[in-house]
């Protein structure tokens, strides 16, 4: 098992155990993480599983998928250089301890 910590915009943190091979999105859904809606179920068609991955993890989470930037452009929440779609990050051993920050809703 791999542990992943989700941090809400207000700082509240929740550490959960993830299954290898699942996506980070799936891990969030399995643990009812607030802020990950995943409306399209992981098809990279909705940008409702948007998160931020800090620099120190970015190498391990790998490059964005083809088309991920275009879909991120359609996110409801603020997009930064750290933005990723959790459906496109696969849980591997290298991600043990991963920190995933969640975006605030824009007004």
């Amino acid at each position: 098992m791999v542990s992943i910590t989700f941090i809400q915009p207000d700082g509240a943190a929740q550490t959960v155990q993830a299954t290898l091979g699942d996506s980070v999105m799936q891990t969030a859904l399995n643990n009812n993480i607030e802020g990950i809606f995943a409306e399209c179920g992981g098809a990279m068609m909705c940008a409702t599983c948007h998160c931020y991955i800090d620099d120190k993890w970015a190498e391990k989470t790998g490059d964005k998928s083809d088309g991920e930037d275009d879909m991120l452009d359609c996110a409801e929440t603020e997009v930064t250089d750290a933005s990723r779609l959790t459906c496109q990050i696969k849980v591997t051993d290298a991600l043990d301890g991963l920190v995933v920050r969640l975006p605030s809703e824009l007004a």
Binding site: E39, C40, G41, C74
Partner: peptide
């Protein structure tokens, strides 16, 4: 609970938002 009126998967409604 999430409903499925906008579908899911690749054809998830483009007009949902």
């Amino acid at each position: 609970h999430p409903h499925q009126s906008f579908g899911s998967g690749p054809h998830h409604c483009a007009g949902a938002q």
